[in-house]
Amino acid sequence: MQDPVEGLDGRAGLAEGEDSQLRPQAPDAQASSQNSATEGDHGNVPRSCPQDSGRPAAPGTLATPGSQAAPGSPSPGNTVGSGAAAEEAAVIPHSEQATLVPGRNGDTASTRNRHLEFSVTVPFRTAMEAGMARRSLVANARPQQVMVQQEFTANDSILAVRWTTDDPVLFRISINTFLDQLSLVMRNIQRLEFVAVVKRGRGRSRES
């Protein structure tokens, strides 16, 4: 009597196992329920047990593709990600080169295009003297403007002169010419002062 009871318990256990395995997947659960009905019909035959053990393997094999699909789906994503990373890695050096090359070229261009500059500041005693010198020197410098750019600025009693050119030889010629003319202007200013003093002296002598 006990033997039939044990047999029923075993079947019930198998059914529960199958149900628990198949519950996550509805189609598999339905298939297993049909199989279990068939098994119930052939329960008396002991040979059907190996077949039953073989059939549960099918759900396992079905589950395996699912498990494979799960890791499969991330792998393409990983590939895409690695591809994107590779693209980013490829782009970054390119962008860096793009940023560096213009900089280098810019530096080279700026270095090549940079003009030579020379400036002189002359401190006169008064703004009037600085103004007189500037007017005289500007007139003399006009013929040289073609080769060398000159800029004269009188700020109060300070005269500032600036040259710009590409050729250092022209620099030397132009600056030497300016300094010679500056000396001449200073002498003229001194003479004007001397003449003024003399005139004042004569005026005083007449008054006396």
């Binding site: 002359v122 005693r125 030397r172 030497n176």
Partner: peptide, 19 residues
């Protein structure tokens, strides 16, 4: 102005040497 004129002469020498 005389001192400044002397300075100009000295500057000419420096410019010639420098350039």
């Amino acid at each position: 102005l005389q001192s400044l004129s002397a300075g100009v002469v000295r500057m000419k020498e420096l410019v010639a040497e420098f350039f």
